[in-house]
């Protein structure tokens, strides 16, 4: 197993308020890390730090063994290799589905329009939305939008994917379709960091669980153990509160 991402002693604060304290962990290629924890524990902030959307005060991120120099320019280059999907989908309402997906490949990666569109169609087909290319985001349901958002991230062929509570604002009946796509990605050995509240899903895909509380990593436990045998009392309480 090769190391893809390593975080060392990451600290972040909003003004005086610390949000992440001394965060260290490693993600290997092909691995699924699930980040769990109560709301406000810093999960979203953590994964936003991993593609430079949030600045951090200290600590180091290594990507493919290289130390990341956290300048805006450098992050912009790295983001092509890091796909990210957000809770609120955030498709661009001014662009149709095809343009939403191909904007990055064409403008950032300078792919030809034909190549980018062909790939977009292939990916859309895998999520069952190949007929939607000409539609606009407002014409789609939440679940469809989220599937498109995943495709938009995948279209750049990232080395790993960040998922920030991507099912949290979906109606229950929409959740399954999105989770299935993520489970498929896991099966294809896509490296992923997933913040979620879907416990069953987390247990199903997690190679490893990072349990965050109050800005600290309290546990880093293999997925098969965390749900049945958490090491800390906080994690036990958390699992109970999640009805798990």
């Amino acid at each position: 197993m090769t190391e893809l991402l390593r975080v060392e002693h990451l600290n972040k604060a909003y003004g005086e308020v610390p949000v992440l304290q001394d965060i260290s962990f490693t993600v290997n290629t092909g691995e699924v890390q699930v980040v769990l924890g109560p709301s406000g524990s810093g999960k979203s902030t953590l994964i936003r730090c991993l593609n430079g959307l949030e600045p951090y005060q200290s600590g180091t991120i290594y990507f493919q063994g290289q130390k990341v120099d956290p300048t805006p320019k450098n992050w912009q280059l790295l983001r092509q290799k890091i796909g990210m999907v957000f809770q609120s989908y955030d498709l661009f309402p001014n662009l149709n589905i095809m343009d939403n997906i191909t904007l990055g490949p064409i403008k950032v990666q300078k792919q030809s329009k034909a190549t980018a569109q062909k790939e977009a169609l292939r990916l859309l087909d895998t999520v069952g939305l190949a007929d939607y290319t000409a539609k606009f985001p407002r014409e789609l349901s939440g679940g469809q939008k989220q599937r498109i958002a995943i495709v938009r991230a995948l279209a750049l062929h990232p080395d790993f994917m960040l998922f920030d509570e991507v099912t949290a604002s979906l109606d229950p009946e929409m959740v399954r379709g999105v989770l299935e796509i993520m489970a498929n990605l896991a099966k294809q050995k896509m490296t992923m960091i997933v913040v979620t509240h879907e416990m069953n899903f987390a247990q199903q895909i997690a190679d490893n669980v990072l349990f965050l509380d109050d800005g600290h990593i309290l546990e880093s436990t293999p997925g098969k153990d965390f749900f049945t045998n958490p090491q800390t009392d906080r994690a036990k309480e958390f699992l109970q509160s999640m009805d798990f």
């Binding site: 936003r48 593609n51 430079g52 959307l53 992050w75 912009q76 280059l77 983001r79 092509q80 890091i82 796909g83 990210m84 957000f86 609120s88 955030d90 498709l91 661009f92 904007l103 990055g104 403008k107 950032v108 990666q109 958002a149 938009r152 991230a153 750049l156």
Partner: peptide, 13 residues
């Protein structure tokens, strides 16, 4: 802000 984030996330300058 989400729109800015997701634009940055796909690598736009």
């Amino acid at each position: 802000q989400h729109q800015v984030d997701s634009g940055l996330a796909i690598g736009l300058n």
